[in-house]
Design a protein around this nucleic acid. Sequence first.
DNA 1: CGGATTTGACCGGCGC
DNA 2: GCGCCGGTCAAATCCG
Length: 297
Amino acid sequence: MSDQEFRDFYYHASTTFNNGHHVESDMFRVSSADHPSSYMSFTGCLQTSMDDYGSLEKAFGLSPSSSEVFSPMIKQQVGGNSSEVMAITPNSSFSSSSNEAAGDCEEDSDNNKNKQPKESDDGGKESPKKGNKTGKKKGGRKQKEARFAFMTKSEVDHLEDGYRWRKYGQKAVKNSPYPRSYYRCTTQKCTVKKRVERSYQDPSTVITTYEGQHNHPLPTTLRGNVAALLQPSMFPLPATTSFPHELFMQMAAPHHHMNNQAGAENFSHFQQYHQHQVPDYGLLQDMVPSGFLKHEP
DNA sequence: CGGATTTGACCGGCGC
DNA sequence: GCGCCGGTCAAATCCG
């Protein structure tokens, strides 16, 4: 991990939901400055954040008390000339040095899910699960989906974000009393997953990690207001979004070809929009953007 | 009854 | 090779 990062933007948002739940989110984008060609490993940082929040804090120069401050989201190249928001795509080979154990690419996991539960090669063993998930290709290096995490102060673990999710797993987290839940977007052919866990250091904080990009708009059936509040004219992003982290995901989307400035503009747009267009489900307040290219070693 | 959740087993990667 | 660990599967169960 680099010891020097740029946080080129940051914001804080607090939201009070109609049901009384209150959440606060702090997010910032971080990039490495001292390795222009080898980006700070987004994945590695996330991995760090998942494994060791102390390391995360160290990595991002956070004080131990600021665990609510967010983790990195968008890999950014800091080249000699101009900074550029790099898409974190499954095909980008930026994580050569990072831990890829946790990674799984969309087509891999989701197609594997369709592998026949009972196949010929069972060899007489009828253990219903055994040896059947071996469809994993060994040769191909697993590609990581774009990942993006954030921390939110909230009483509820699973925050409503406008999409529909199905829980497919839960695991105990090492060194934490709180489990980690695994969700998958229920929309067909959408491979987006997310993990939700509560920080053991600050139980009031929920860490949500998104992986992949939605290839569909918000489900219109879901709380109509969520989708309704996002209109292309107001929010010129390809897919609509309701939460800041969704915005970030979209900003990181490869097909946008966004540069830093574009990202900033969209972000400003987002802010302006949400300062005036309050979602039905909550009351966004106190979004505090900081200056760009703020250097915080 | 169908969809969502729970939960223990399984898998692959990684470190030793 | 073995054990650990994160992630996923899928049968069982729950629930509206």
